[in-house]
């Protein structure tokens, strides 16, 4: 464990932020060098006899003992550690798709996946409709400013529902939720009804609700 302080020379951590020189001990020796010598067991005659160097060497030995004790203690990770790490890794790996939010105070954005989840939730709350997928984008308008959002959804409908009026209602709800829940104006909603379902029914035939 080298304890010599950052020199601030090129190629060292000092590139990031230069540090002020370390104040030498009262005897003129560099405390960090004394620490290194104490750790390596190479204290010279002055360092062995000088009270200032002796105090610095004692500090180094005390720290080494404490670090050694901590290093030997068994690590007991929290029970949720795997879930949190996996979640963080997946979130990091997933290319984040962001929708810009209008703000006079600086850059602001909304995760497109979160926005889509909100819109899916709105459709799921409607009787007779269920959302399958949702994608929301906000292409740039002229001048580089973000234009209104465009939403593409796939849904399933309860068997017997009037599809024309149902999709009109979905469109209305999506536009309202975009403005009220997300703060994003929605200019276009493309809805594809991909299937129908029957409440509580399990039918094996392909293309019929399960």
């Amino acid at each position: 464990m080298a304890l010599t302080p950052d020199t601030g020379l090129p190629g060292t951590a000092g590139d990031v932020e230069a540090h002020a020189p370390v104040e030498p001990l009262a005897c003129g020796r560099d405390a960090a060098e004394v620490w290194d010598h104490a750790e390596a067991g190479t204290l010279d005659e002055h360092e062995r006899s000088c009270p200032h160097c002796g105090a610095a060497a004692a500090d180094a030995r005390g720290l080494e003992a404490m670090v050694g004790r901590l290093a030997q203690e068994p690590l007991i990770p929290p029970a949720s550690v795997v879930d949190r790490v996996v979640g963080a890794v997946l979130a990091e790996l997933r290319p984040r798709d962001l929708i810009p939010l209008d703000s006079p105070h600086g850059p602001a954005a909304l995760d497109a996946t979160a926005a889509a989840a909100v819109l899916r939730g709105v459709v799921d709350a409607m009787a007779g409709m269920r959302a399958r997928s949702c994608r929301i984008t906000r292409p740039s308008a002229s001048g580089g400013t973000p234009g209104p959002a465009e939403v593409a959804m796939t849904v399933t409908a309860r068997f017997g529902v009037d599809l024309a009026s149902a999709t009109a209602r979905v469109r209305q709800m999506v536009v309202a939720a975009g403005e009220q829940a997300l703060g994003v104006p929605v200019a276009r909603v493309d809805i594809e009804v991909v299937d129908v379902f029957v409440d509580g029914a399990f039918v094996d035939e392909p293309g019929v609700a399960r």
């Binding site: 209008d102 703000s103 602001a108 909100v118 997300l182 703060g183």
Partner: peptide, 17 residues
């Protein structure tokens, strides 16, 4: 859900700033 995302982002920017 229930908090407008755009308004929330603006409020956070304003308060933090």
């Amino acid at each position: 859900l229930g908090f407008n995302c755009r308004d929330l982002a603006r409020a956070v920017q304003r308060e933090v700033g």
